[in-house]
């Protein structure tokens, strides 16, 4: 057993324990770590994402070029988004909050315009394409595990989609199919839940591994 002498490892270990102390009850150590996490993550996001990846290449550099040659056509394109961005800050004051509608409208409209073809392509056409069973050449055995699984996928997708079909009352044959659709949805939710739990547990194992091996040096 060789306890780490690295102050950074000690900091990480103590902060990890401070967060886990919440399992007992809410306490000052947890609150300290929680507030530290908020501050550090905002600082990280501000410098690494906003400053380095947006402000410098998309605002600072074009403005520098414009300062040297004011009629550089391409860089003039920076002006409209800058105006919209400044209007966004109008939300700080209730009297000028209406100004933020313009950038909001641009973001919403653009997002909606991008979403329509993208959703059609990836979430509808591609998913339907993946569900359709292609009939194999006569030489290939049709009743194979692969085709049975594909048939099962087709049945489940149809049942789940019919579950969300509300234009007709869920009675009779449709009612029975929608019950199956609900069961299949439960199956999907159960699988997603189990998968999420395992992902969290693997994070927990990672933290325990850090505490035992990296910090305390227990092997």
């Amino acid at each position: 057993m060789a306890i780490s002498h690295d102050p950074w490892v000690w900091a990480a270990a103590l902060l990890t324990l401070a967060i886990y102390s919440f399992l007992y009850k809410d306490n000052p150590f947890y609150k300290f770590a929680e507030h530290l996490y908020i501050g550090v993550s905002v600082g990280y996001f501000l410098y690494f994402i906003i400053w380095q990846q947006i402000v410098v290449p998309l605002i600072y550099d074009p403005l520098k070029v414009l300062f040297i040659s004011p009629f550089h056509t391409k860089e003039l394109l920076i002006i409209p988004p800058l105006i919209l961005s400044i209007m966004m800050l109008g939300r700080i004051s209730p009297r000028h909050a209406w100004m933020s509608r313009w950038p909001m409208a641009y973001v919403m409209g653009m997002g909606a315009g991008l979403a329509i073809p993208a959703y059609f392509q990836t979430n509808i056409f591609k998913q339907i394409e993946g569900t359709i069973i292609s009939i194999p050449p006569a030489t290939i055995e049709i009743v194979s595990t692969y085709y049975l699984n594909k048939l099962l996928v087709l049945i489940i997708v149809t049942c789940v989609l019919l579950f969300f079909y509300f234009s007709r009352e869920h009675k009779g044959a449709l009612g029975r199919i929608t019950i199956l659709g609900r069961w299949f949805l439960m199956l999907g939710f159960g699988a997603a839940f189990g998968y999420t739990v395992m992902a969290r547990v693997s994070l927990l194992i990672g933290r325990l591994d850090f505490l035992l091996h990296t910090w305390l040096g227990i092997h």
Binding site: I116, F120, N123, I124, L152, V160, L185, G188, A191
Partner: peptide, 20 residues
């Protein structure tokens, strides 16, 4: 790989229609 993927696919198509 199969039942879960199929159920998620059904959900995905429904969500996409709603989003559109």
């Amino acid at each position: 790989a199969y039942p879960n993927m199929a159920a998620q696919r059904g959900l995905l198509i429904g969500i996409a229609l709603g989003a559109i």
